[in-house]
Nucleic acid binder design. Structure first.
Length: 507
DNA sequence: TTCCGACAGTGGGGTCGCAAT
DNA sequence: ATTGCGACCCCACTATCGGAA
């Protein structure tokens, strides 16, 4: 199959707004793709590369050769070249990689170049990713989408599942099973503004578990072999020997556990997330680093224990298996209640202990991996500040032509403002239109291709999760997960919060 | 007919490893 | 030694479609 066939379908998908229409276009192509090309086609049309990443980003794609006029590139040819690009390493690799990228793009028409460029950026923007492709695979293979979804949960990679379904139908899908040592798509949580709302969503009584601010881990043990995976199914086993040792000390030799690693201080309170992230992502000198910053692991679910698959069992049954397999000290603190007051006290306690909040879990839901179902609901405290808009950046994609990303500043009592970060979240289309117009009236000072500097006159109420140390911003601090709540036309700039107020929140 | 769950899109800060400077 | 790039940890929110109620 030619690349252009896939590109044409992607363009049709982009033009179609109805999801069922998108599914139809995708399924049509899956119906005529060859068995050796199915994985590549499914991968491209769900917005990812079979290689996952190949070491090519926006900088490498800045200047590219002239496009060809005739579309002759094959899917397998492009895929093979991308694999070669990924394999490049060592001194001189940047120019070698660039040369291969040039070779790749010289063989593509401008239409194809656009497509591959967006794929490499991870921004296909055709309105269809895994969720839509699952339905397309179901339609093209004649299998129920629930079976496709289930196989994806267990296999963790849709192109393999889709190719299997196209070749072998429902039977092939049923052949995908939980394999110890191969990562399962993790179950994700939705969110609620407060504990009462979370209980309502999950159904009371529910289980309330501490939400620890670390890195999600899925730990597999088969005999003396242990593997640890992240939320995106990357293998981080060498970086977390503490988790490996914990698994090996457990009595059961056949385990798949879900949990969180984080760095705790000697007094038991958590380090800032940055400390945990630094430790977990360091691959060099792990032995030394663990002396200075040991990791702790806490498990909250069991997908397999003592040779039994548990994914389809309700929460309470999985918890029985978990508490039977894992030492008490490695269990995530938990309370089962339907009482709102009791739940709120538990929430207050966990926040006082320095942790992130709670995850409220339905007692009956199975391990529904890979989707943010109603089974798990997270609740975190929310801080707010009144800040001043210092500048704004032009948006991309559906925000093209709109000033979107706000630069936020706190008032400096000595005069002026201190930038604390940016945000684009929380804006409705109406607000985007309004602020674009208003910002252009306030434009003043340096303006480049992306950024418009403003007279500091607008006060905006910002919600955020916390203040963290920043090597980037002048005040040495930045807001974590900042989002717009509302503009405050009733407030003058002199009423905005000060740098001191922000600093007092950092601790 | 209305409601709501699931999805895609739009980007945020921080940190690491690696290659180039 | 420092800088730039790519990758990946953490992530919130809105618009939209289409099935459920």
């Amino acid at each position: 199959m030619l690349l252009i066939d896939v590109v044409r379908v992607s363009e049709a998908v982009t033009r179609t707004s109805a999801r069922l229409g998108k599914i139809g276009h995708l399924a049509e192509l899956l119906g005529r793709v060859g068995p050796d090309e199915a994985e590549i086609a499914i991968s491209y049309l769900s917005g990812e590369l079979p290689q996952r990443q190949v070491g090519v980003g926006w900088r490498t794609l800045e200047d590219l050769p002239q496009p060809k006029l005739a579309a002759t590139a094959t899917l397998t040819g492009v895929d093979a070249l991308l694999s070669r690009i990924k394999a490049v390493s060592g001194p001189g690799s940047q120019s070698a990689r660039k040369a291969l990228v040039a070779e790749l793009f010289a063989g593509l028409t401008s239409q194809e170049q656009q497509f591959i460029r967006r794929l490499l950026h991870g921004e296909l923007r055709q309105g269809a990713l895994d969720g839509v492709m699952i339905e397309a695979v179901a339609k093209a293979s004649g299998a129920p989408s629930a079976d496709v979804r289930r196989a994806l949960t267990l296999r963790g990679w849709l192109p393999a599942v889709g190719a299997g379904a196209l070749a072998g139908g429902v039977e092939a899908l049923h052949a995908f099973r939980l394999e110890v040592g191969r990562a399962v798509s993790p179950m994700l949580a939705g969110s609620a503004p407060n504990v009462a709302a979370a209980l309502e969503k999950a159904g009371a009584p529910a289980a309330l578990e501490w939400k620890l601010d670390g890195v999600r881990v899925q730990a597999h043990r088969s005999g003396s072999e242990v593997r640890v995976f992240t939320r995106t199914l990357d293998d981080i086993t060498p970086q977390v020997p503490e988790v490996v040792e914990a698994l090996l000390e457990m009595p059961s030799a056949d385990l798949v556990l879900d949990g969180e690693v984080l760095a705790l201080r000697p007094d038991g309170r958590p380090h800032p997330f940055q400390v945990t992230a630094s430790r977990v992502s360091s691959k060099l000198n792990v032995a030394q680093l663990r002396e200075q910053t040991p990791l702790s692991v806490f498990f909250f679910d069991a997908l397999r224990a003592d040779g039994e698959d548990l994914l389809d069992l309700p929460y309470t049954r999985r918890q029985e298996a978990l508490t039977g397999a894992v030492p008490h000290g490695l269990l995530t603190p938990r309370l089962i209640t339907g009482d709102v007051a009791e739940a709120e006290k538990f929430f207050t306690d966990v926040v006082k202990a320095g942790h992130e909040g709670l995850v409220v879990k339905s007692l009956v839901s199975p391990y529904a991996a890979g989707r943010r179902g109603a089974g798990w609901i997270k609740v975190k405290p929310r801080h707010t500040l009144d800040l001043v808009v210092l500048a704004a950046e032009w948006g991309h994609g559906r925000r093209e032509g709109k000033l979107s990303n706000l630069h936020l500043g706190a008032r400096d009592p000595e005069g002026g403002f201190v930038m604390l970060g940016k945000t684009f979240k929380g804006l409705t289309d109406e607000l985007l239109a309004w602020q674009t117009e208003r910002f252009l009236e306030l434009a003043e000072g340096p303006t480049d291709e992306w950024t418009v500097t403003l007279r500091p006159e607008l006060v905006v109420e910002i919600a955020f999760d916390g203040v963290q140390r920043s090597p980037r911003y002048p005040g040495g601090m930045a807001l974590r997960f900042a989002r717009v709540l509302r503009y405050r036309p009733d407030k003058r700039v002199e009423d905005a919060d000060t740098v001191e107020t922000v600093r007092s929140l950092m601790l």
